[in-house]
Each structure stands twice: as structure tokens, then as C-alpha cells.
Design a protein around this nucleic acid. Structure first.
Length: 375
DNA sequence: GACTTGCCAAAGGTACCACT
DNA sequence: AGTGGTACCTTTGGCAAGTC
């Protein structure tokens, strides 16, 4: 049954965007959450529901950590067939049947959904990752977070279906614009385009979204830099003895680049920087900047990933968490905090053995100002 | 005929990538 | 961290053409 027209322009096609969270990949895993939204020009408010796990099944700690879904929250979970029927009801309201459906990395979601459908599957699925891989073959990463960031939308730290549905819908709309420039302008043309074999690419050199001249024009001077998305939001704050060398070093390696770095560089379109008189000054500015902006990729100084230290304004107390008594920080280790205390007290003997070196005296006045005014 | 070289395809192994 | 599918790379073997 085809109610709508398959020749309708892709940007006008009403689609269902779906995302699932699960305890693990199929067939071992169980559905934990389903989210969906109807998209045509604008995105309707996404609907998401937690799915009750089979008796005896629990949410693995790792999944609970990345999704934020707790056993307590699962009290509101619904039966999986109930959720599937609600999704099918929404699918049936679309003009085209089977319902044009957009899923990111559909390979993960489809086995769960097909099991729920038990032979009846009213969805005509395309995968945004497959489209992106063809349209942007040299983009370092095509994960949902990387793609959304590439087009200028942040994805929340916790992986939840409602947020992922909105992000997928956003990515879909951006991809449709690119598809139409390639002459892929209808739903059926999109299927044909996806089915066509891809030209083999033997040496695929990465294409960084950040223009080369932007990074090459950075000064050979110490300072702090901020990696920015296309909308200007900050991805990462770093410090450098030479802004030019540090930032350009990210873009030289083709292999062995850490996963999170690739994901960040897939999103970074611009850079802003502040030149400082010395590398030490940059090192002092960096934590302030991180604390103020909370960039998502400053993993090293986030409390979730390793123990951090905070200290009191008079440096006499320390705590692994920020508090009214210990608002200064974060410091990556007790050793760094020791150096900070020594620097503030002018203990040159302690300083010259540490990473601050002979620059220590140069920044003491600023450091004392920081200690006096912890805001 | 024996050997070398180049090409191709299949098989097997490994690295990559995306998900939770 | 664990998982699984895919892409890529290497190895292997068969074949044809060229050279000695």
C-alpha cells in the first residue's frame, strides 16, 4: 500500500526517526528504551519510553553509567509490545507506507525492532551513518555524536533515546540538503543510491573539517586554545607552549589517533585562542577556562574519569570534590596541588624540582590574586 | 621446459568503527 | 569493557605471458 508519492522531494518526505537503547547488542541484549519522532521540515516532540526488562535481567553497570538509566527509573518502564504498538501506530499515520524510517546505525536497532514485529515490519529503514559514510567518506568519524557536532549540534553526555532521536533528525535534515546537491532527491532515489556499489578507496586520507589555513595561521607563541563547533560552542580547551605546533600536531597523524580525539576533530570547524606571556601562564589559565566553559572533551579534568582535587582559598584544606570550603580547582593530582601550594607560598626550593621550573616567580603575583579571589 | 613476472580471486586474519 | 559486522590487508594459489 503506497499512500504518498515516492517521487516527493526528499526534504518534503514525512519520516519517522527512531532510536533504541539496549543492555547489549542483539541477540544477547534486551531493549531498554525506544524513542521516536515524526519529521517533516520540523521535528515533532520526540516520544520515548523505557522498556521493561525480562524477569531476572538487570541493567549492566556500564550501560547504566552511559545512559543514566537506573533500576529505580525502570519502575516507569512499559511492556515492550505496548511500546512497539505505539510506534507502529505512529508509523501508520505517515503518508507513505511502509513508513519511511531514519535510524542512525540501523544495524544495531533493526534486530530488536524486527523481533518485536515478529514478521510484521511496517518500517522502510535508511541509516544516516550509511548515508554519511558515502557523502563524507573522509570524515574521521561518522558516529551520531561526531556527525551532529560536525553539522553544529551538541549531543548530551548521557545516551538517551529522546536526545538521540532529535540529533538523528537534525543530522537527517542536514544530509538531505547534501543529498539534493548530489541529485538524490526522492526516497526511492535514495534507496537506489545506497544500493549502488561504492568506488573502492585504497588510500583514504582523512579530511578534517577545520580549514587548513585556520590552524596554519596560529602564532608560534604560548597560550590557550579552544576547539569550536560550527555554531561556536566550545569542544575542548587546551594549553600550549606553541599554539601553532600544538594545534597542528592534532592533524598530522593518520593512524593511532585516540577515538575521542577523532570524534572531537570530526566536529571542530574553528579555533579561538589567547596568547599568554609564558607557558606557565597558559597552564594557569587553562583550568579556569575549563571550569567556566565545561567543554565536553576535557576528559582529563572531569570528575567522572579520575580523581580530582580541590583546595580552600588559603590552601590549607583539600577535597576530592568542589565545596564551599574547597572551591579552587580542579587539580589533576595531589602532586599538582602541592606544586600549586608551593608556588603560592613562594617556596622556590620545592618549585624548581617540579614542572614549574624557573618561570615560577613570574606568575606568583597572578597566582596570589587567584587565591585571594577564587571566583 | 624451466623460470620469472604480473595479474586476479579467494581465503583468512586483523584492524576499525559503532553501539550499549 | 565488551561485542559484532565490515573493510581492509596479506597470503596463497592458479593462470597466462614473456624470457632464457
Amino acid at each position: 500500500m503506497v499512500l504518498g508519492s515516492r517521487s516527493e522531494p526528499l526534504s518534503q518526505v514525512e519520516v519517522l526517526v527512531v532510536d533504541c537503547q539496549a543492555t547489549a547488542a542483539a541477540p544477547r541484549g534486551h531493549l531498554l528504551e525506544i524513542g521516536w519522532a515524526q519529521v517533516r521540515n520540523t521535528v515533532t516532540h520526540p516520544h520515548a519510553c523505557l522498556i521493561a526488562l525480562p524477569d531476572g535481567e538487570e541493567i549492566p553497570p556500564a550501560v547504566s553509567r552511559i545512559t543514566g538509566i537506573s533500576e529505580h527509573m525502570m519502575r516507569a518502564a512499559v511492556d515492550r509490545q505496548l511500546a512497539w504498538r505505539a510506534l507502529c501506530y505512529q508509523a501508520a499515520s505517515l503518508t507513505q507506507q511502509p513508513a519511511p524510517t531514519v535510524i542512525h546505525f540501523a544495524r544495531f536497532e533493526q534486530p530488536f525492532l524486527r523481533t518485536l514485529g515478529a514478521g510484521l515490519f511496517p518500517l522502510d529503514v535508511v541509516c544516516t551513518r550509511d548515508i554519511a559514510r558515502r557523502l563524507l567518506p573522509n570524515l574521521p568519524r561518522c558516529s551520531l555524536r561526531a556527525l551532529a557536532g560536525y553539522f553544529g549540534r551538541a549531543v548530551g553526555a548521557l545516551r538517551r533515546s529522546a536526545d538521540h532521536v532529535e540529533a538523528t533528525a537534525f543530522v537527517w535534515q542536514e544530509l538531505v540538503r547534501l543529498l539534493e546537491t548530489k541529485g538524490v532527491s526522492t526516497w526511492s532515489a535514495l534507496h537506489e543510491w545506497l544500493a549502488a556499489p561504492v568506488e573502492p578507496t585504497r588510500c583514504r586520507r582523512r579530511l578534517w573539517p577545520m580549514p587548513r589555513d585556520v590552524r596554519l595561521s596560529l602564532p608560534h607563541a604560548p597560550g590557550i586554545y579552544r576547539m569550536l563547533r560550527i555554531d561556536g560552542s566550545v569542544l575542548y580547551v587546551g594549553k600550549a607552549a606553541s599554539l601553532h605546533h600544538r594545534v597542528n600536531s592534532y592533524f598530522r597523524k593518520q593512524n593511532g589517533v585516540p577515538e575521542r580525539l577523532l570524534e572531537m576533530l570530526s566536529q571542530a570547524r574553528a579555533i579561538s585562542f589567547d596568547v599568554t606571556p609564558s607557558p606557565l601562564e597558559a597552564a594557569l589559565l587553562e583550568p579556569d577556562e575549563i571550569k567556566r566553559r565545561r567543554p565536553p572533551y576535557n576528559v582529563a579534568l572531569t570528575i567522572h574519569d579520575r580523581a580530582l582535587w580541590f583546595t580552600s582559598p588559603d590552601l590549607s584544606a583539600r577535597s576530592p570534590e568542589p565545596s564551599p570550603d574547597c572551591p579552587l580547582g580542579p587539580f589533576a593530582s595531589p602532586e599538582t596541588l602541592d606544586q600549586f601550594v608551593a608556588l603560592a607560598r613562594g617556596d622556590r626550593a620545592a618549585l624548581t624540582s617540579g614542572p614549574w621550573g624557573p618561570d615560577a616567580g613570574h606568575v606568583q603575583s597572578r597566582l596570589r590574586a587567584v587565591v585571594r579571589d577564587p571566583s
